[in-house]
Amino acid sequence: MMTLDTVGVHRQARVIMIDGGHRIRSYLNTLGIHIGDWLTVVQRAPFRGPVLVEIHGSRVALGRGIATKIRVDMDGVLESLSGSTEVFGAGS
């Protein structure tokens, strides 16, 4: 499992888990970022700056702190929190 801050530019990834409390999660949810969503990393700022991701047609800048809390997967495997592993078709 990797975190969003390690995903390279132009790569797609799927959100599989958001570490952190209700607040941070609902905050990301409101910007349209949910578990299971695919996103594309558009830019990565230097000096541990934010990552810019494209999701559902809009672009969101995420600071590195938050990016390290977003666990992603790049080959379409969604692990649910309960531990069972469901396999989805490789997305868009």
């Binding site: 607040r23 990301l28 969101v60 800048a61 995420l62 600071g63 590195r64 702190g65």
Partner: peptide
């Protein structure tokens, strides 16, 4: 602070 989360 939650850090930067900002729509561009």
């Amino acid at each position: 602070s939650p850090g930067l989360v900002l729509e561009i």
